[in-house]
Amino acid sequence: MTKRVIYEGRVQGVGFRYTTKDLARGFDVLGTVKNLPDGSVELIIAGEDAEVGEFLRDLQEDSAVAHHIKNVLVEEIAPLPDLKGFSIVS
């Protein structure tokens, strides 16, 4: 499963991308996280359904970022064969 998730709120300048990358180390997932020009953050996450689901739940419950999230938009997308590891994209 591959998902594109947009996090809206005060999610830039608060360590959101770094928290996301650190959390990803504990899961068998691939992906990227980056700031978007409109102030939101885009997460691309790929892996087994259960891993992706648990990762997304844990991220939204993480005390370092949870209170900054005001809205979450999730869509399933086609697999991206170029994903390797998990990285922050500028």
Rank of each mutant, 00 (worst) to 15 (best):
40 S>V: 13
18 Y>K: 06
6 I>A: 00
57 R>E: 10
74 V>D: 09
26 G>P: 08
2 T>D: 02
22 D>T: 13
19 T>C: 15
59 L>R: 08
30 L>K: 09
80 L>A: 14
27 F>N: 00
55 F>R: 01
82 D>P: 03
75 E>S: 07
33 V>L: 11
34 K>Q: 09
65 V>H: 07
23 L>K: 02
77 I>C: 07
19 T>P: 11
9 G>P: 07
36 L>S: 15
44 I>T: 14
73 L>K: 10
75 E>H: 05
27 F>C: 03
36 L>N: 15
85 G>N: 05
61 E>L: 13
44 I>L: 15
24 A>W: 02
4 R>N: 02
90 S>H: 12
16 F>K: 01
33 V>H: 07
70 K>F: 11
78 A>M: 03
51 E>C: 12
83 L>T: 01
43 L>G: 13
63 S>G: 10
75 E>R: 09
90 S>N: 09
68 H>R: 08
82 D>R: 13
1 M>V: 06
52 V>N: 02
22 D>H: 11
19 T>F: 09
16 F>E: 03
39 G>A: 10
78 A>F: 02
71 N>A: 14
43 L>C: 12
76 E>V: 05
62 D>S: 11
53 G>C: 00
87 S>V: 09
26 G>E: 14
5 V>C: 01
17 R>W: 02
30 L>I: 00
56 L>D: 03
13 G>N: 05
15 G>R: 06
22 D>Y: 13
75 E>L: 03
73 L>I: 10
52 V>E: 04
24 A>P: 12
74 V>P: 05
32 T>F: 03
4 R>E: 03
10 R>W: 11
51 E>L: 11
23 L>S: 03
58 D>E: 15
9 G>L: 01
28 D>E: 10
58 D>T: 13
12 Q>R: 06
27 F>M: 02
71 N>M: 12
17 R>S: 01
23 L>I: 02
10 R>P: 08
4 R>Y: 01
15 G>E: 03
22 D>C: 10
50 A>W: 13
77 I>S: 06
43 L>F: 11
32 T>Q: 04
45 I>D: 09
59 L>C: 15
